[in-house]
């Protein structure tokens, strides 16, 4: 499926697996590959980008700027990774991150007077694996404690009400 990462390994190659995403934007069909598929902090990696026109398959031959930012809400701080010219029609951008985290790599180029911006996810190191589990457990605990508290109040109110009715009756 387009836009979905797929992991591949060829038995003819001794290289570690890579992650590849394909998508299209405007007049261009874009293939993006991260090598290695799961880069760790302080490990050099590379992004390869290939863009070709949808109508005639002609590869894009201008220059592509690669930028990176944290994949978090309300974050606009962007850093330029580099500006690349095609090497055998492929734009290659090296990277090395010091810290683990989720990042967005933005590839920018201009073609036919139109600006193109394509965002791709890049995960460095292991994500906070157990965070969602902790959140779920916490949410369930809060829910159950709240329900218990409300129910206890209800029961006490019912007891008081029935006691009053008994006395009145």
């Amino acid at each position: 499926m387009l836009g979905r990462p797929s992991y591949s390994l060829n038995e003819d190659s001794t290289t570690p697996p890579s992650m590849q995403v394909e998508t299209q934007i405007g007049d261009y069909y874009v293939t993006y590959m991260v090598f290695p598929a799961f880069p760790s902090p302080n490990q050099p990696g590379r992004v390869n980008l290939y863009a070709s026109r949808i109508d005639d398959g002609r590869p894009f031959d201008g220059e592509v700027a690669f930028k990176v930012r944290d994949d978090s809400l309300f974050n606009d701080d962007e850093e330029l990774l580099g500006v690349q010219l095609p090497d055998d029609n492929v734009f290659r951008q090296g990277f090395e991150f010091r810290e683990a985290g989720n990042f967005i790599v933005r590839a920018e180029f201009e073609a036919g007077g139109e600006p193109y911006q394509i965002d791709f996810p890049l995960q460095i190191g292991e994500p906070a694996r157990w965070g969602p589990l902790g959140l779920t457990v916490a949410a369930i605990m809060v829910l159950l404690i709240t329900v218990n508290f409300v129910q206890r109040n209800r029961l006490i109110s019912d007891k008081i009400r029935s006691g009053r009715q008994d006395r009145a009756g």
Binding site: L2, G3, R4, T23, Q24, I25, G26, I118
Partner: peptide, 10 residues
């Protein structure tokens, strides 16, 4: 996607 100018995960 080409018609609605969609990109990314489409």
């Amino acid at each position: 996607a080409a018609l609605v100018n969609d990109s990314g995960k489409l």
